[in-house]
């Protein structure tokens, strides 16, 4: 006979903060604080306890319809199960890469997956150009095609040490270690102590460290 233990109702995809804290740079209290944030994000449009792409875009841009290549890629990487939504466990584990204390190797690998648009295991020249054009478009910057080609060529030849027309993970790692500012976008200082940055979340935190 089974034993039914009554617990407060949690959203689908909810995971034990102790487990998530053990797997990520977050403390248990910080995971609890992230849950408060997650609840808010995941109920902004659809009240189903999961973050849909429109909810992600709404939080990021204050506009649920804003299309952006990089936001799409970040969402897709957060959506580990590839089911079109981000659950709580995916949210915490993915944000963990952006924690200041996350290993640099992990940040480098995450950035590689982000920029490997077609998931071929390589960053291709065409992908790099596509990302540069997307950035120029989102920033309302106009550069001639010749200038864009020159920027892409120069960067690509610096990173593609083997000269085979694609950047592999090893080349990417070496390139980033030489140019560490390239992964500054992989660190969110806010995550260092989210319970201090968002004290209101602590009020409803269930777990004390």
């Amino acid at each position: 006979m089974g034993c039914y233990c009554s617990k407060p109702e949690k959203t689908p995809g909810y995971e034990d903060p102790v487990v998530l804290a053990a797997e990520t740079p977050f403390t248990v209290s910080e995971v609890e604080a992230l849950y408060e944030l997650f609840k808010k994000l995941s109920s902004s449009i659809y009240d189903d306890g999961l973050i849909h792409k429109e909810e992600f875009q709404l939080a990021l841009f204050r506009n649920q319809n804003k299309k952006n290549l990089f936001a799409d890629r970040i969402f897709d990487l957060f959506d580990v199960k590839r089911n079109g939504v981000i659950d709580f466990g995916e949210f915490v584990r993915s944000l963990g890469f952006f924690h200041p204390n996350a290993p640099v190797e992990d940040k480098i690998a995450f950035a590689f997956r982000l920029y490997d648009l077609r998931q071929t295991g390589f960053i291709e020249r065409e992908e790099l150009k596509e990302m540069v054009l997307a950035l120029l478009h989102e920033s309302d910057l106009l550069l001639s095609d010749d200038v864009v080609e020159a920027i892409v060529d120069k960067t690509f030849s610096d990173a593609d040490k083997k000269g085979d027309g694609r950047i592999d993970q090893q080349e990417w790692k070496e390139y980033v270690l030489k140019h560490p500012t390239l992964i500054k976008n992989m660190t969110l200082p806010y995550l260092k102590d989210i319970t201090l940055a968002f004290p209101s979340f602590v009020m409803s935190s269930e777990v004390e460290d």
Binding site: L41, L95, L128, V132, S139, L143, V147, A150, V152, L188
Partner: peptide, 25 residues
């Protein structure tokens, strides 16, 4: 000079990486 820009540096400035926006109350 634009041609001396690093393409990866450029794309890392996308506003999509402002994930702190997710934390705004």
């Amino acid at each position: 000079k634009p041609t001396s820009m690093n393409a990866f540096e450029l794309i890392s400035r996308s506003q999509s990486f402002n994930l702190e926006n997710l934390f705004e109350k």
